[in-house]
Structures are given as C-alpha cells and as structure tokens.
C-alpha cells in the first residue's frame, strides 16, 4: 500500500470574479521512502496541492471540493481541525520556500523549536533542548547552541532552511512536503540543502514530496515526478523515463527551456525553447485540454475533452494525458 494516495483532488477558491479551480482533479501516489516531485509553473496548483494534503487550504475562501487523500489508507479529506492536528507535524510535515518569513520573527529559534517539540506529547524542557540540539546536528549545524539563541533574521538563508528542516523533522514525520525548498537560496547552498534532503531520506526513510519548478532539482533527487499544468497533472512517471523521453508537449517545452536538459549535439543545442502564450485563466478553464492554446500539436480533438491517461512506455512507469503523445517524441 502506498503511503499517500491522492485521487481526483479538486481544490477551489471562491473569489469575487468566480470560482478559481486551483487544483482540478489531481491523482498520484507516494510510497514509503520515495522522493517525488510536483513540477510546474507558478500558478499551476502545485503548492495548493501540498497545502491540501496538509489540511491547510487558505481560509476562508479555499475549499477541497472533491477527491480523496488517503494517508496510510485513511482519508484525510473532511477531517476536523482537531483530528488533523495529529497528522500535521506528527505524520506529515512541511517546509516552505522562504524560511525567513516561515519563522516567527519575534521569538528565538530555540523558543520555536522547543514549542514544536513539546507540542508532541510530554517532553520536559531539558529533554526538548537535547532533542533540538540533536536535530540541528542532524541537519548539519555545528553550533546548535548559538543557533538556538538566535533570532531568525540573524541567520543566513541556508542556515534558516536547515533550521526549518530540523523543525520539520522534530516530529519524525513519515512524509515531508517541501515547497520550493531551494528557490530562495544561492546556487551553492541549494546543492547543500538538496544533499541534506537526500541524506535525511536515506537515513530516516522519510518520504519527500518536493514542489518545484526546477527540473534540476528533480534530476538530482527524485524517484518520480508529476508535471502539473493549470491545476492538472499532464505527465507522471519515473524520473528517468520522463527526463530521457518526455512525451507531453508541455513537459518537453518546460525542459527545452532549461539549458541542462538539452540533448548534447542536438541542433537546437544553443537555443532555448520557449513556450508561447500564458497559462489559461483558472476561472474560465477551457473544456478540453488546458494546454490547447499554447500547444503546437493541438487538433480539434483536444478542444473537446481533457484526455485520459495513457501509458507512454511498455513497462507502465510513465503516464501522459495527451492525445498526441506519439507525435511529440
């Protein structure tokens, strides 16, 4: 049984302009110890998917309208906030893009870490401190005492993200959701944080769901990847398959826009591809494929209905939602 199984998740926001379908029927699953990536542009619904899993859909206008989120076989959708608290932090933890704003500026790191540790059952002050020190060591911080007595603004970006990870690990989660964990960091620090996540995954067996727009992160770290566009998954499968042979026009475009994923020697080598146009309005989504307007392969068929999932290879490790995937390759 998969650790997390999301099926047909639909999360909407009610605004004055109408209903924004931020997540529009997303299905995927994560096994124990797996690292999976949700990839997409900003506004594709990947972050909202993460927040939906953790029961943190922004209030008061956001709502999960349909679908199931099975965690260890138990459906999380519709749980009350009290029941969810057992899951939040206990079973699933989350780290955010900007570690500076993700910590309370008015308290020291120590104060916040102890609070989180002590909220998980009866832990004494001394014990909480020991645990915090241990966690900080685990995430590669060498002067835990100094860090514990610092305020968030006094640390560097990389340190802050390490602290965030330590906080997330304090409750020994089975699943860690990392929302753009490296986007706000310098390139050298990015690599360190990714290595740290990999190390944690290996040592503790924590499954990780990484939300990113960067295929570099995917290639470095992830076992499987789901590509999202306009609230839907358009391609899903094992990282190796998708990176070597993307079959959805959007995935191909997305990878073409990054220099490191161009096949060596291909004639477009020095020229990055760009995807023309802008993503569709999530309030007035087209009936058919949402990528229709920007797609070079689009036909009348695409206009009618969103395509079903089809296998993209023989081993059954790669799915695509596209009528024309055979032509793309």
């Amino acid at each position: 049984m998969a650790l997390l199984e999301v099926s047909n998740l639909k999360t909407c926001f009610h605004t004055s302009r109408g209903k924004v379908k931020a997540v529009n029927g997303v299905s995927f699953s994560i096994d124990k110890g797996e690292i999976m990536a949700l990839v997409g542009e900003s506004g594709s619904g990947k972050s909202i998917t993460g927040l939906s899993i953790l029961g943190l859909v922004p209030q008061p206008n956001g709502k999960i309208e349909d679908g199931k989120i099975l965690f260890k076989g138990e459906n999380l959708v519709g749980k009350g906030s009290k029941e969810y608290r057992q899951i939040q932090g206990g079973e699933i933890a989350m780290i955010f893009q900007n570690p500076l704003t993700a910590m309370d500026p008015s308290y020291t790191i120590g104060n916040q870490m102890f609070e989180i540790i002590r909220s998980r059952g009866k832990v004494g002050k001394k014990e909480a401190r020991d645990q915090a020190v241990k966690l900080l060591h685990l995430v590669g911080i060498h002067e835990p005492e100094r860090v514990l007595s610092s305020y968030p603004h006094a640390l560097s970006g990389g340190m802050r993200q390490r602290v965030m990870i330590a906080m997330a690990l304090s409750c020994k989660p089975k699943l860690l959701i990392a929302d753009e964990p490296t986007t706000a960091l310098d390139a050298t620090i990015q690599k360190q944080i990714l290595d740290l996540l990999k190390k944690i995954n290996k040592e503790t067996g924590t499954a990780i769901l990484i939300i990113t727009h960067d295929f570099g992160v995917v290639a470095n770290l992830c076992d499987s990847v789901a590509v999202m566009y306009a609230g839907r998954i358009v391609e899903y499968g094992e990282t190796n398959d998708i990176l070597s042979k993307p079959v959805h026009p959007y995935t191909k475009g997305l990878m073409g826009a990054m220099p490191e994923f161009q096949e060596p020697g291909s004639k477009g080598m020095n020229r990055l591809i760009q995807i023309d146009g802008t993503p569709p309005d999530l309030i007035e989504l087209p009936e058919g494929c949402s990528f229709f307007e920007r797609c070079n392969f689009a036909t009348n068929l695409c206009k009618k209905a969103f395509p079903d999932a089809t296998y993209a290879n023989d081993s059954g490790t790669q799915f695509v939602y596209c009528y024309h995937s055979k032509e793309v390759v």
Binding site: Q88, M94, A102, I116, R120, M167
Partner: peptide, 15 residues
C-alpha cells in the same frame, strides 16, 4: 495569513 502561522499549523501547534 503569514508564513510562520502556516508553518506552526503545519507542525500541529495548537490554535
């Protein structure tokens, strides 16, 4: 609506 409240909620801190 701040990020840190989101963090604390994500870690199961009581309301």
């Amino acid at each position: 609506n701040s990020d840190y409240v989101k963090t604390f909620r994500a870690y199961g801190i009581s309301e």
